[in-house]
Simulated scan of single mutants.
Amino acid sequence: MRTSSNPSKQKGTAWESALVAYLREHHDPGVHRNVQMGARDIGDLAGYYLHAVEAKAEKTITLADYIAQANREAIHAGQPFGCAVVKRRMKGVADGYVVRDVRTDVRLINRLKIMEEALQDADFDRWHDIDEELREAA
């Protein structure tokens, strides 16, 4: 196995790997790291539902750059949403930040609202059970 002599790249790879492990356990076992594709990059991770993920573990945080990159990569990946998952210094994966611009967040929340309303209309009892379960998990 070849290792990088670039400490920043090693940090980024470690963050991506830790993020993949966390998402596999808590979201979807199919989450994986993507192969980098240069100008047509599709994000660092695949399998985070409906998202292209740009994973960042940097000392200096530049949100505008991260969001622009995540949104561009979402288009390349054919995903409706892009987000940056930013490592919080001296903290574990669960304490990291998922960041998106307001435009993207409103589109996501609108989709969630519409889908919940559709489930309520189609099967209120199922919606109620799911809602109750997710409220208790919070």
Rank of each mutant, 00 (worst) to 15 (best):
M1K: 14
M1Y: 15
T3K: 13
S5N: 11
P7K: 12
P7Y: 15
K9E: 12
Q10G: 09
Q10K: 15
K11N: 13
K11I: 04
G12E: 01
G12H: 05
A14N: 10
W15P: 00
E16S: 04
E16P: 03
A18T: 02
V20L: 01
V20C: 00
A21Y: 05
L23W: 12
R24I: 01
E25L: 12
D28E: 06
G30S: 13
V31L: 04
H32D: 12
R33F: 00
R33K: 14
N34K: 02
Q36D: 14
M37F: 04
G38S: 04
A39D: 14
A39Y: 03
I42S: 00
G43N: 08
D44Q: 01
L45T: 05
L45Q: 01
A46W: 04
G47N: 02
Y48D: 11
L50T: 14
H51Y: 13
H51W: 08
A52E: 06
V53C: 13
V53T: 11
E54Q: 15
E54A: 09
K56L: 03
A57E: 08
E58Y: 05
E58K: 07
T60V: 15
I61T: 08
T62L: 08
L63F: 14
A64L: 11
A64W: 08
D65M: 05
Y66H: 09
Q69I: 07
A70V: 01
N71E: 11
R72I: 00
R72Y: 00
R72N: 06
I75K: 15
A77I: 05
A77R: 02
G78D: 07
G78R: 02
F81Y: 09
F81V: 11
G82Y: 03
C83A: 13
A84V: 02
V85G: 00
V85Y: 03
V86G: 03
V86D: 03
V86Y: 05
K87N: 08
K87P: 05
R88I: 13
R89G: 14
M90Y: 07
M90K: 07
K91Q: 11
G92L: 02
G92C: 02
D95R: 10
D95A: 10
D95P: 00
G96N: 02
G96H: 01
Y97R: 03
V98D: 04
D101N: 08
D101V: 00
V102R: 09
R103D: 08
R103T: 06
R103M: 06
R103N: 07
T104D: 04
D105E: 11
V106L: 14
R107Q: 12
N110M: 07
N110K: 04
R111G: 03
K113P: 01
I114N: 03
M115C: 10
E117C: 06
A118Q: 08
A118G: 08
A122N: 05
A122F: 12
A122V: 06
D123G: 04
D123W: 13
D123T: 11
D125A: 11
D125F: 09
D125I: 09
D125K: 15
W127T: 07
W127P: 04
H128D: 13
D129R: 14
D131N: 15
D131S: 15
L134Y: 13
R135M: 08
E136A: 14
A138F: 15
A138R: 13
